[in-house]
Structures are given as structure tokens and as C-alpha cells.
Amino acid sequence: MRLPPRVRLLGLSEVFKRGCGYDCIIAHNIADLLDVKRISDPRVIFLHTTLEGRAINEQVQTPPEHIRHNSVSIWL
């Protein structure tokens, strides 16, 4: 993959060595977000799936309606 200008790829170990100092960490899924839990910089997670789609994909029994109106965190 050719990267846009001024972008460089880093491995997680390199990120951990540096420790902190990022303006923003962008995660595209929960696994990415958990990968950077040891770093305290500001972070954003982008939701690329619907709640209903994710529930089907993860075979979650709790109805999406219940999750939506109660607590997303019980499931995230």
C-alpha cells in the first residue's frame, strides 16, 4: 500500500516505546482500541458497523434495542 505524503507506518512495539505524545489516536474497531489502552493520548473510535450488524456478526443474544436504550458499554 502506498502511503499518503507525510504518513509513515509504525509497529505497535515502536508506538509503546515512544509511549505518548500523539495528538489523536484513531481506532477503527475495538481490537485497535484495546491495543492502545496503555497510552493515555486522546482517542477516537469510528463505528463502521451498525449495532444490529455487529450483534449478528458477534452472535450476541441481547436485543440491539435493549443495548441501544440501556448501556452500550455492557457489550462494547
Binding site: 473510535i45 463505528l47 463502521h48
Partner: peptide
């Protein structure tokens, strides 16, 4: 952190 949805459909789905 902060969560953002990438479309209106997904935002509505999560109740955002």
C-alpha cells in the same frame, strides 16, 4: 475516548 459513527444510519443504530 470519543466515538464517532461514519454515517447517519450507523449513528442512529447506536443511538448517537
Amino acid at each position: 475516548g470519543h466515538a464517532m459513527a461514519i454515517s447517519n444510519l450507523k449513528g442512529r443504530s447506536w443511538g448517537m
